[in-house]
Nucleic acid binder design. Structure first.
Length: 199
DNA sequence: AAGTATACCAACCGCGAGCGC
DNA sequence: GGCGCTCGCGGTTGGTATACT
């Protein structure tokens, strides 16, 4: 059975949070051999971890140029727009946010943005009478999302499946595209979707 | 101060695709 | 074409931190 594509079958393998020592070992081996053949990486590093776990740790934490810390307003806006276009394709969204990982964006969406969305829906049903000032921006963003979903529901397919991202994006997934440029690009894309679904 | 609820996020899991043999 | 290995993705879980009572 596939050791990486299914659960780690190493019975006594370490689980849970990585220690600083493990991180150090992993980084050292990757520096020498590169981030591939994760089963061997795990073995060479002397880590009692499965390859899959090593890969995840590298991709989400140890990789160079990982940007940690709060998601900026600009990034949040970009996430909302990209999610509107791409749906739950976190790796694609992450590819357009330099330094951010798919896991981080997925977590952010699940803990922050989906919550705001629910809040907005409740408000629309009259459960919330007055919005708080600090919620105004979030609600504006949620309107964008809702509008998109309404538009998508008018068609036979939803927006997530109706186009190939390759038609819109180019460059490597590692590329650090300029956020400002991407914002302008997405504005054009939104117009295009409005044309397709709202007219 | 203690107990409980909630939020956040790192890590795990299962699946499918690509590739080489 | 079948098989095994590897990689990447998205959904989910579980531990920890923080807020609340």
């Amino acid at each position: 059975m596939d050791p990486l594509s299914s659960r780690c079958n190493k019975k006594d393998a370490n689980r849970g949070t990585w220690t600083a020592e493990e991180d150090q070992k992993l980084a050292k081996v990757i520096e020498i051999h590169g981030p591939r053949r994760w089963k061997k990486v795990a073995a060479n590093a002397g880590l009692n971890r499965c390859g899959k776990s090593c890969r995840l740790r590298w991709m989400n934490y140890l990789r160079p140029n990982i940007k940690r810390g709060n998601i900026s307003d600009q990034e949040e806006d970009l996430i909302l727009r990209l999610h509107k276009l791409l749906g739950n394709r976190w790796s694609l969204i992450a590819g357009r946010l330099p330094g951010r990982t798919d896991n981080e964006i997925k977590n952010y969406w699940n803990s922050h943005l989906s919550k705001k969305k629910k809040q907005k829906q409740r408000q629309n049903r009259g459960f919330i009478v007055e919005s708080q000032p600090e919620e105004a921006k979030a609600m504006e963003m949620e309107n964008m999302v809702n509008k998109s979903e309404e538009g998508a529901s008018k068609g036979e397919e939803n927006t997530q499946a109706s186009f190939n991202e390759g038609d819109f994006f180019y460059g490597s997934s590692e590329g650090a595209l300029d956020l400002q440029w991407m914002g302008k690009f997405l504005e054009l894309e939104e117009s295009w979707f409005e044309f397709l679904y709202d007219k």
